[in-house]
Amino acid sequence: MHASTHPGEPHGARLGQRLNWLRAGVLGANDGIVSVAALVVGVAGATTATAALFTAGIAGLVGGAVSMALGEYVSVSSQRDSERALIAKESRELSEMPEEELDELTQLYRARGLSDATARRVAEELTAHDALSAHLEVELHIDQDDLVNPWHAALSSAIAFTLGALLPLIAILLPPPEWRVPVTFVAVLAALAITGTVSAYLGGASKVRAAARLMIGGALALTATWLIGTLLGTTVV
């Protein structure tokens, strides 16, 4: 009754989880690109001072990375707490009413298209092997050996945001003052086109549409902050 597998072939659920992590990394990089780019372009609209641009960029990078890490840690911690609570509940039910749980597992396999006799046999064999794992996989879609790790999620988010944020920070600091904003615009839009294409590929969506959405949104954000910086720089200074 076991499906054949090939050595080294990734498990379906774990492959899906890896794709989700990769997609989250791309989104984190997008956040770093757009938020820090908008910040430094806004400051560049008000002043050409390299120290001010560097300070604003580093502050945005550090603040954004910490914020992303904290948000991801809290979110994933809540998810892991929920999964642990469900595992404890299922374990308690298996201990207190094993027959009812066996019937429930049988019904779940019937719902998947197995005949009554086959569903019962599969349920009995899986229960004899590892009842808790069988119920968690079929009923709750949880792998108790592969629970999400909030520290990994927080670190991944912080790294993704930082890598994305470094692009506009470098683009705004390296060129001469008169080229800083145009170079940053071009670098950011090119990066967003790439990340949009990658995220669309991972999600099976239209690459052109996803890239265009990100590029338009990024261009609007940069234009808005540059105009605000220019206006405030003119009126305040």
Rank of each mutant, 00 (worst) to 15 (best):
A37H: 12
A38S: 11
L39N: 11
L39F: 11
V40F: 12
V40Y: 07
V41E: 01
G42F: 03
V43Q: 13
A44V: 14
G45Q: 07
A46L: 10
A46F: 03
A46G: 10
A46D: 03
A46I: 04
A46T: 10
T47M: 04
T48M: 07
T48A: 03
A49I: 11
T50Y: 04
A51V: 15
A51N: 10
A51Q: 15
A52E: 12
A52C: 09
A52W: 13
T55K: 15
A56R: 08
I58H: 02
A59L: 08
A59D: 00
A59S: 06
G60Y: 08
L61A: 08
V62Y: 10
G63V: 10
G64N: 13
A65R: 02
A65M: 11
V66G: 05
S67W: 05
M68E: 13
A69G: 13
L70T: 01
G71R: 10
Y73L: 02
V74E: 09
V74A: 13
S75E: 09
V76A: 14
S77E: 06
S78D: 03
Q79I: 11
Q79D: 14
D81Y: 11
S82L: 14
S82P: 08
S82H: 08
E83V: 12
R84L: 11
R84S: 10
R84H: 13
I87F: 05
I87R: 06
E90Q: 03
R92V: 02
R92F: 01
S95D: 11
E96H: 09
M97S: 07
M97C: 00
P98W: 02
P98C: 03
E99T: 02
E99Y: 06
E101G: 00
E101V: 01
E101W: 00
L102V: 01
D103L: 13
D103W: 06
D103E: 04
E104D: 01
E104Y: 11
L105Q: 02
L105K: 10
T106I: 08
L108Y: 06
Y109R: 00
Y109E: 01
R110N: 13
A111C: 12
A111S: 15
R112Q: 11
R112H: 01
G113A: 11
G113H: 08
L114V: 01
L114S: 00
L114T: 01
S115N: 03
A117W: 01
T118F: 07
R120G: 04
E124H: 03
T127Q: 04
A128H: 09
A131C: 07
L132A: 00
S133N: 13
A134L: 02
H135W: 09
L136N: 02
